[in-house]
Computed example of a mutant assay.
Amino acid sequence: MPKNARPWTMITLAWLVAIAATLGALFIGEVMGQIPCTLCWYQRIAMFPLVAILGTAAYRGDPSAWRYALPLGTIGLTIAAYHSLQYAGLLPPPIVPCQTTGPSCSSTGMLVLGIPIPYLSTAAFSGIVLLLLPLARTRS
């Protein structure tokens, strides 16, 4: 096994997660016609560039791409976790922007395979961050 096969595998897997999340978001918005709430837009802003960053890194075999992708993934994870806590009702109602203005993530149309979109986003960002963290530890 080549010395850099593990970093390449981790970056490629993170890229595949980012592609799946991006295609899912585009499908929900463009095909299903569901307008994203404000927090969903912020998560898209963090996810979409990860496709290009991680894809380029996987193609070039560049394990140092974690320096660019990990902060973006962490920001996205923070927003997605906050959104999930709002969806679960663990945060007080006055600070729930997606249920007071614009589209609501609590409608039944915002489920994919029975799973709420905020939870899917949290899972995707968590996967990306968990795949990139070992690279940050070994390449510091």
Rank of each mutant, 00 (worst) to 15 (best):
L26D: 04
P7R: 02
T74F: 02
I115D: 03
L72V: 14
L70Y: 13
F48T: 13
I117Y: 11
A65V: 09
A20K: 01
W66Y: 15
P7S: 06
L133G: 00
T78Q: 00
L90V: 10
L13V: 12
P49V: 10
R44S: 14
P103L: 02
P93G: 06
I115C: 04
M32E: 12
Q43C: 15
T138G: 03
C40K: 02
A52L: 15
G89A: 07
S107Q: 10
Y42M: 14
A21K: 01
A88G: 04
Y82G: 05
C37R: 04
C37W: 03
Y87N: 03
P116Y: 08
P7M: 06
P118Y: 10
P103C: 01
I53H: 04
V129C: 12
A69K: 02
Y42P: 00
H83M: 12
P36E: 07
R67I: 07
A136I: 01
C105Q: 02
L77Q: 12
S126C: 05
P118D: 09
V51I: 13
G33T: 07
H83N: 13
T78H: 00
V96Y: 13
L85F: 15
T12R: 11
A21C: 10
L39N: 04
L113W: 14
A18W: 08
L133W: 13
G73D: 05
P7N: 04
P7V: 06
A80C: 09
S126V: 01
W41H: 14
M47T: 10
G102E: 08
P92Q: 11
T38C: 03
H83V: 00
S107P: 00
T56S: 14
M32W: 12
A58I: 05
I53Y: 04
A81E: 10
C98G: 03
K3N: 07
H83I: 00
P2L: 09
G33R: 09
I53P: 02
P134H: 09
L50P: 05
T38A: 15
C98F: 10
P94T: 03
G55Y: 09
G114N: 10
V129A: 06
G102F: 10
V96R: 13
P118L: 06
P103W: 05
T122W: 11
L113C: 07
I117V: 15
I11W: 07
L70A: 12
A88V: 02
P7I: 04
I79C: 06
K3H: 11
G76D: 09
A69S: 13
I35A: 15
W8T: 12
T74I: 04
L85M: 15
G29C: 01
I75Y: 12
S106N: 11
I79P: 05
C98I: 03
L72D: 01
G127R: 07
P93F: 08
C37S: 15
W15M: 08
L85Y: 11
P36M: 08
L16R: 11
P36I: 07
L54N: 06
L50T: 05
G102P: 05
L90Q: 11
Y87I: 02
T78I: 12
L113K: 01
G24F: 08
R60C: 03
S121V: 00
I35W: 08
I95M: 15
A25I: 04
L70N: 02
I115L: 12
A81G: 12
M1N: 07
P94Q: 09
G109Y: 10
L26G: 11
A52S: 11
L85V: 00
P116C: 10
G33Q: 07
G109F: 10
W8I: 01
A20C: 04
